[in-house]
Amino acid sequence: MSQANQIVEAGGVTPPATVKVWDPLVRIAHWSLATLFLVAYATGDDIETVHIAAGYTIAALVTLRVIWGVIGPQHARFRNFVRSPAVTFAYLRDVVLFRAPRYIGHNPAGGAMIVALLTLITGSCITGVMMTTDAYWGSKILEEVHEIFANLTLGLVVFHVLGVLLASFEHRENLVKAMFTGRKRAG
Rank of each mutant, 00 (worst) to 15 (best):
L25H: 09
G72N: 12
A90N: 15
L166C: 06
I121P: 15
V62E: 13
I7A: 13
Y56S: 15
I28N: 14
S84R: 11
F98E: 13
L92W: 15
T14H: 12
L152A: 14
N174G: 07
V87T: 14
G163K: 03
L64K: 07
R172I: 00
F81K: 04
G123K: 03
G12H: 04
V26Q: 12
M113H: 06
L120Y: 08
A90G: 13
V145W: 08
E144S: 04
P101C: 02
G187C: 01
R102S: 05
W137P: 00
L118G: 10
F78R: 05
V161T: 08
G163H: 03
T18E: 11
A29P: 11
H106L: 09
L64W: 14
Y56D: 14
A40C: 04
I71W: 09
G123N: 03
L25C: 06
M131Y: 04
A4T: 11
V176F: 13
V8T: 10
T181M: 01
A29M: 05
P16W: 04
L156M: 12
L117H: 08
R183W: 02
E9G: 11
C125S: 10
I52W: 05
D23A: 08
L61Y: 06
M130H: 02
V62I: 13
I148F: 13
L165S: 08
F78K: 09
K177A: 01
P73I: 02
L92C: 13
L33S: 09
V129D: 01
L154A: 10
R65M: 01
L156V: 06
S124H: 05
M130F: 05
L92I: 15
I71D: 07
N174V: 00
F159E: 03
E170A: 10
L166V: 10
R183A: 02
P73Q: 14
K140P: 02
W22H: 06
S32A: 12
T35G: 12
P15E: 02
N151K: 15
A34Q: 05
A150F: 11
V145Y: 06
A40E: 00
S32D: 04
L152V: 12
L166T: 05
M131R: 07
L25S: 01
A29C: 14
I126K: 06
N174W: 07
E173F: 03
E173W: 08
W31L: 05
G12C: 01
V87I: 11
